[in-house]
Structure formats: structure tokens, C-alpha cells
Design a protein around this nucleic acid. Sequence first.
RNA 1: GCCGGGAUGGUGGAAUCGGCAGACACGGACGUCUCAAAAGCGUCUGCCUGAGAGGGCGUGCGGGUUCAAGUCCCGCUCCCGGCACCA
Length: 847
Amino acid sequence: MTAAENAEEARAYDPREIQDKWQERWARIEPFRADDDPDDPRERFYLVDMFPYPSGDLHMGHAEAYAIGDAMARYWFLRGKNVLHPIGWDAFGLPAENAAIRRNSHPADWTFANIETQAASFRRYAVSFDWTRRLATCEPDYYRWNQWLFLRFYERGLAYRKGGYVNWCPKDQTVLANEQVVAGRCERCGTEVIRRVLTQWYFKITEYADRLLADAKALEGNWPDRVLTMQRNWIGRSAGAQVHFTVEGRDEPVTVYTTRPDTLYGATFFVVAADSALAADLVTSGQRPQFEAYLERVQKLTDIERQSTDREKTGVFLGVHAVNPVNGERIPVWAADYVLPDYGTGAIMAVPAHDQRDLDFARKFGLPVRIVVATDLPDPAQTGTATPGDGVLVNSGPLDGLSKVEGIKRIIEILGERGLGEAATSYRLRDWLLSRQRFWGTPIPIIHCPSCGEVPVPEDQLPVLLPDLRGADLSPKGVSPLAAATDWVNVSCPKCGGAAKRDTDTMDTFVDSSWYMFRYTSPGYDGGPFREADVDRWAPVDLYVGGVEHAILHLLYARFFTKVMQDMGLLKFGEPFTRLLNQGQVINGGKAMSKSLGNGVDLGEQIDRFGVDAIRLTMIFASPPEDDIDWADVNPEAMVKFLGRVRRIAADVAAAGAPGGAAPAGADVAAGDVAAGDRALRRATHHAIDEVTRQVESHHLNVAVARLMELVTATRRAIDSGPGAADPAVREAAEALTVMISLFAPYTAEECWTDLGRAAADGPQASVGRAPWPAADPALLVQESVTCVVQVNGKVRDRLDVSPAITEDELRELALATPGVSRALPDPASIKRVIVRAPKLVNIVVA
RNA sequence: GCCGGGAUGGUGGAAUCGGCAGACACGGACGUCUCAAAAGCGUCUGCCUGAGAGGGCGUGCGGGUUCAAGUCCCGCUCCCGGCACCA
């Protein structure tokens, strides 16, 4: 193709036509393979995009997330780093199972078909993945290490089985972790969750609560504040005291947890959670019928009903009295559902004057209210509004006259001396319930033996493979479908050899995603979850990109796993993700895209219409990465036009270069080989390089694109009405533009790079993705003249073009002589002060 | 209720340290090229006022600090997100 034809083709640029060609080329030259060679001198950079769940093809949300992550990965490649940018699939989980039930097929079929679809879409979307490392968590050589890690947790007492209240989704017929219950509903299907008593497996994340909290401090500035805040709230550490009460007719004390032990003298009754073992234990035989009737009512409530704060208080007297340990007072013991069985000790001392919930209860059942904190607020017993704040303690024996803080300190001393209580902390965080009664997950590697109890599957028998169960009924029955695979379930006990049964539950898929970022460093390794040298070389992840919806689920679990693996000596660090970038969502018309609203936008259709580059650029330019994008507000057509302008610049430069006399391809303009040419354009180019570099590093990708648009305008002007396309400064601009735009529009950038004659014939360097990032020449960043603003009383009245080196005195004099100042200031005698901030601003203050 | 975050033109958004508010786009208007259209290229586009030069107003509302406030301080309103009977 001649240069003229090339320019003609560029004029009719259709960004879609070039896609196939480059996809084939990239697959062949592999420009984005990470180098594991320890002698590679380049600095390493590890960037992970949260891996997708393989339900169907990629959608608009993926398009935004991966456009952002890819721009950052490509940037670090261009900066010459050895970048690891892997991809995998979070491939276990309920949707695969539900789809299999609907289609009467196998979850694996659906899952692997979707993975292939998504992989092809990722390649089309031109994401710079290292395709040699792809993983899927449903593959035995991955989930084997889930089982291995589970057993290591088990040995350390961090995985255990206990009975108790659990969240149960009646539709999916499975238990859910606390984190998977959103506003009282199943995170997956939206059904109201109920509570059931079941024996389940847990990870002891509560043991790490303090470390998760303390180490969050170190993430400040590198993680979004809102994620850290959400994690802190979720962990919900509170400080207070445990106080031991005696209950009449019972030998063992009953302990309560309170954050206000200073109000102990104001306790007028005692409440235990109705659905706790303690309540059933304390109730007298006379009160038992009422209690049992009440308990039955409570257990029928869904979480939503139970947690509704505006619900009227309910409860029942248990027939016994507790004794306040500090004043010997007898207070009645009630059972109520506003006290939760699994927080604190499941029992409270009620101080109705200073706690709204206790006050509501007291007023409902006519229990006494005693003020022990003096405030200037009206009597709670009259108003129904508790006074929970600070104040001087009264009616409190030795605490009288103390403040809240002093009172808490003093009462803990008193209780401690007498063995009646001690300081204590409590957490909102509960242990992570990890077992699921579903098929498509990692089998829990435990064997239940009638004589030996729980027996871990020996390591040399891992992985415990999922039985095929092809054709079996996978529909939810409340018991794992694995239980029906009798050949699989019935095994001999590894300890005693007797008949035993496998655990039939599978692991929560959040187990899979808690450590996958480390597996990428050692693809295919079969000596452990990852090779030590590899994980040391790459991890922790330098930049993690994904949605904020994982703020407390995945991100908290991954942090927990990392700390445990650090304690096991598998990792040398305690935090998995050094920096976190949350992208927003793509919505349409102000609402989340959904089938029911019929406002879904299909990514494939968008790409067919506008091409990959234009869609990527639309995603990047629409808003800062963390904000939502409303697709109704954007216009990818504008990006198609912009890409055409970019392409035409390269084509014009190439065409001008061909007949001879133009700057040679490959001349190192940035280093000063080509000093001649349009200095205004050179300054614009270097200013753009400087700006784009800084904006990209601070993740202001939308602004980086704006700066590239400015460079395009300046370059076009130089071609059309300046020195022309043959000017070396124009070539310099075109080359810098091409490299920088490759972050967002890889296809167009490759095409331009080829036009400009810069692409190597073959190998990874044949891609613009491996070109050097342009360097801004500091000499060209210095402005020849700057605009100085002249204000009178803070209002702009004139402007001056001045040298950046101008002195204050010179500038003051110039400013006072401007027409704008004379207009606004007829009488120079009225000047009170002149503030000069050379060279940018003069402010004349008049009376 | 508690804890975060936010509010800037018709729209998306920009604005290191307190120093030109509205970069860059979308949308709109007009021009140029053309037989014509499209594409391209260019000009204008916060509001009010004015023929124009210019002037007044202007970053949710009310105050304050400062020569100077989108930015800092105090008090509100509204919106978004998270948590929510956690003692």
C-alpha cells in the first residue's frame, strides 16, 4: 500500500476493520507475557483485575472494569516494567448449578463453555493478559489446594464445626455466611433469609479481628477510604466490660457484656436472648409454657422482621431474679428477641434510662426506670426518649460525681477487685460459615468416622474429586447432592479403617477467591498452592482493580487468608493488595441494567457498532474510574470520530514522510535528535506527556484522555495551518500520541505505530504495547510566557502576558498600568495594598 | 438512628498549595468545503444585561476566616452508599 492510499484509508477509518488482524498478531507475538526469569533486570509490577464469574458473556460492567485495569497494566509495560497481568475464572458457584438444573445438563459444561466465550471476548477486547497463566477454580489442580489449605487451617484450629443459628436461604436450600445476607435477604436470589440451627463448618476469622483492624491503618491512602470504613464497621470492635450476675437458684454466674459498665447502678432488669440455651435453662417451670409459646413465635420470624427497629418490643418474664453484683439489688430476668443470642454473651443488663431499646421494653412492660447519668434532658420515663450520652454519674454509690470515662475506669477496677467482672471487647464480626449444601464447589476434605470422629483426608489422597453425578438430580433439597453419591460418600476411615462417610458439604466459593492471586504466580505448580520463589517475586499485588461490591466479602476474606498464610510461613507479608482501585458501575438511564427493567445494553452489540477502541475510550473518558457511568449520558460515536482524528494524524505524517525530506521514522526526537521544528507544538507535546503521565499514575484516566485530545487538536493545527505534516515536531507529537493512546485504544495505536514505521517486524517489540513511554523534556515544560491575572479586590479586571522570571516590582508596575485597572479604579489614591504573587497574580486592594 | 461520601453550565465532568471557575467532551447554533448530503475542518455556547466595549451575578443553602474560598471553619438542606435491636 502506498502512503497516499494509506492516508486515504485512514480518512475513511473504521476502527472495527483492523481488529481481527491484530488479534491474530498479538496471539502470535505475545507482547504481554510476564518474565519469570529471576535475572530479568526490569522492576516487577503485579496487577490483578478481580476475576470474573463465568455466567454468560462479558457485559458492560466488565468492559469498564477491564478497560481501567488494562490501561494501568499497559502503562507499566510501557514504563519498562516486567508486568504480571493474569486472568482466571471464579468458576464454582450456584448459578452454574442452577443453570444445569434448568437445562438438565452438568454445571461443568455450562461453566467451561462460558469460560471459552469470555476468553474470546477478552482477546477481542484487547486486554493485555498473560494468557499462559489462566486458571479456573473448578479445576481439580486448583481446588486441590483449597482442600490443602482447609486442612492446614483445621490443624491450627482455624477451621471447626459447630452447631448454632445459621442463615438459611429457603429458595437455594443452603446456609449463607453473614456477609452473604444483604438487608436480610439472600445475596444471590433475594429471598428472605431465615434462621436455623445446624452444625456447620466455620473459619475462625474472629481470631484475626484485631489484626484485620490494625493493619487496615497501613492501607490508608492506598485503599479507598470507604472500603476501609466499611471493613472497620463490619468488624465492629467495641470496648466495654463483662459483668457477672448471680441468678437466684443457680450456682454459675450469668455474664453480660456492656459498653456502659458505668451505668451498672441503673440496671433495673435483665434480658437474655429468647432463642439462647441460657433462656431455656433459666426459665422456671411455672413460666415455661409462656416462654415456649413466645419462643415459637420468635423462631418463625425472618431476619428482616426480627431486625426491624421500629417493631414493638416483645418478651416474657422467666420467673427468676438476678442479683446486681454491686448493690445486691434483685432484678427480674426476662427473655426477649431484641437481645441477640450470638453477640456478646447473649444476655444484657437493661439500663432503661440510658438505652432506648431497654427504655422501650421497660415502658411496654411497666418496669422501673432509674436515672444514673445527670443531664439537662427531660426524664426518659416521661418522654420515652433515653439519654444515652455523657454526664455526671448519680445514684451510683462510689461512682457518683464521675464522668462517663472515669466511671467506666473506676467500675472496672471495682469489679476486678471483687472478681465480679473485667474489661472486655466484643466484635460484630462473626466467624465465617464456609460449608454449603450444594454440589458445584470444593468438597470439604473431612471423613466422619463413627469411632474416630472427624478425620482429615490424608494429604496424599488430595484432591478429593467431585463425583461426576452427571444425570443426577442436583435440585436443592437442603442436603448436599453429594450425599446421594453413595459410592463416593462411603469410604474407610483413614485412621481405623472402619466404615466411614465423607463430609458431603462443599466450600463457599469465597474460599476459592481468597488466595487465587497467589496461584497466578505459579501456574500448574503441584508442590503446593504456589511456589515460594514465585510468590516472593511477584506478590503482594501492587494494584488490584475491581468493584466496591466486594468491600466486605472477598476483600476481607482475602486479607484474612493472607494473614493466616503468613502465620503458616507460606507468605512473607500480611496484606494481599498494596493498592486498591474500585471502579464504578455501568448503569442506564439512572438505574442498574436489568432484565426486568428492559434497560440492558449488550456489550457485543456495542462493540459491533462502534468497535473495541471506541467502547474502551468511552468507558475511560466518561468519568473518573470510581464513578458510575450512565450509558444514556455517553456517546461512543464521538470516540469513533476522535480515533479517526488520531489515525489521520499518523497517516498524514507517514504520507509526508514518504516522498523524502521528512523526519525519518525512528529518529529519537524525544532525546533531542530532532531539535528543529515547531516549538509551540513541541511544548504542547511535552506538556501532554508530562500531564498524561501524572494523571495516569494518579488514576485520573478521564483527564489523561482529555489531555490527549488537546494534543490531537494542537497536532492537527500544526499539520493544517502550521509547519505541516513533514515537520519533525509533528512526527514527535504523532509518535508520543500513539504510544500514550495505546493505553485506551490498542488497535488504533498499533495501526498508527505501523503507519509511522516504528513497529518492529516481529517479536513482542512489534507491538506498540512494548514501546518506550515518551519522556517529557523539562526544558520544554518551561513556559516562555505566562498569563498573569490582575485583580481589583479579588475580581479579575485584566490579564498580562509576562515572562515567568518577572520580578514582583516589575509586575506590580505593569499591573497598575493596565486598562482594566484604570477602568475599575479611577482614583489611584484609594489603593490600600497590592498583593503580588509573581508571575501569576496581582491583587489590588482598595478601600 | 449511626458511619462514610457527595452536591460545579442543558448533560458527563475539570480545577497540586486557598490564586483566571467551567479544561476536555456531549448536546446546541453558525460558518467552510460540496451540485447536494455525509464526513472533515473551523467559530461560538454558565446566567442576566448591553449594539459593542463592558458591567452585574454565579460552584446546594445560611454565616465566618482571608487581600483572595468550589477549595478552609461553623450551622443547615438534599442526594448516594454502607451498617442497623450488636447492648
